[in-house]
């Protein structure tokens, strides 16, 4: 028997106990191909596209003209800054209301001696499994004053009907209504993350504190909260990212235009109208302006996420 001829060990890889990079690349490449072609490259190339104007056949380089239009043009910039402002209101609702509710529910649900915790936990999370479109349509129907007024008045809840045009038809309340529906739907996610975080705290710490005479409120604010700062940071980041992802909720409740009178227009719907569908009434999409919007989102995400990451995740 003669030994097989030895090939370059780096290529043969699988035959050595520590195969080299060229061997392992075979396993990595399929994933890389999908990830690069359909996510990383289109994301980065959108930055380049934001410097061009027109569609495929007629594209020309225009420098920062799209950004100038987006930030200063009378029509476009009004829409952009309006959506930008609405997005911050939308974000504030989630950051404050949703996450405060989440922490409260989590604190209750991690109470060892309470019964029925599993049951409540299961129910709270159900809305998170349903499509935003479904819950959006449902709330739109339920908030319709034409239908809901009489039945609500019958059970003494008439005050829930706001005005003839309803919560969703009044520019002053529409954005709050949409935000609250979104808060209602997603509160389960921070709740579950905080539940996991609270459960991860060492019991001895709480016990030591209670022996030292700390009351439950002090235990909560001085020990449990400081110990879950990394998770709070993570929730804040997720809330911030999801904020720019929001589209379905406005689409289903208030149409693509962020009705009434653009009062619920978010960056997501603005991006769709300019970049994909074409702004009413012209109807011709402007990929350049759309890419400028998505690049702005990209920059805002980086500016928002990195400082929070560094501040809350560094000390491990």
């Amino acid at each position: 028997m003669t030994a097989k001829p030895r090939k370059n060990p780096a290529f043969q890889g699988g035959g050595s106990i520590r195969p080299g990079g060229i061997y392992w690349m075979r396993y990595v490449i399929p994933a890389l191909v999908f990830y690069v072609i359909f996510m990383a490259y289109p994301m980065l190339d959108s930055v380049r596209l934001s410097l061009y104007e027109g569609t495929a056949g007629t594209r020309q380089f225009v420098g920062f003209a799209n950004y100038v239009r987006l930030f200063t043009d009378e029509v476009v910039s009004t829409r952009f800054w309006n959506a930008f402002k609405n997005n911050w209101v939308f974000f504030a609702y989630h950051m404050i209301l949703q996450n405060a509710l989440g922490i409260t529910f989590a604190a209750i649900l991690t109470n060892r001696t309470m019964r029925g915790r599993q049951f409540y936990q299961t129910l709270i999370f159900i809305p998170c499994t349903v499509a935003v479109l479904v819950t959006g349509y449902l709330f739109k129907i339920m908030m319709n004053p034409q239908w809901a007024k009489a039945p609500l008045e019958n059970v003494g809840l008439g005050f829930l009907v706001h005005s003839p045009q309803g919560w969703l038809g009044d520019p002053g309340t529409a954005l709050s209504a949409v935000s609250m529906v979104s808060v209602w739907q997603w509160v389960g996610i921070p709740t579950m993350m905080f539940v996991a975080a609270f459960q991860g705290i060492d019991d001895d710490l709480i016990e030591a504190a209670s022996i030292e005479g700390a009351n439950p409120w002090q235990q909560f604010t001085r020990i449990r909260i400081p110990l879950i700062i990394p998770v709070i940071g993570m929730v804040a980041i997720m809330t911030f990212v999801a904020n720019f992802n929001a589209f379905d909720v406005v689409f289903s409740m208030e149409t693509l235009d962020g009705a009434p009178n653009y009062s619920t227009d978010l960056i997501g719907t603005l991006f769709y109208r300019y970049g994909v569908a074409g702004q009413h009434p012209v109807g011709i999409p402007e990929p350049g302006v759309g890419s400028a919007i998505s690049t702005s989102i990209f920059v805002m995400l980086l500016c928002g996420v990195i400082p929070v990451l560094v501040k809350t995740q560094g000390k491990e």
Binding site: F38, M43, S46, F244, G275, P287, S294, I297
Partner: peptide, 8 residues
């Protein structure tokens, strides 16, 4: 979010 790559 992959949405920002939509146009490309």
């Amino acid at each position: 979010p992959i949405k920002i790559a939509t146009i490309r």
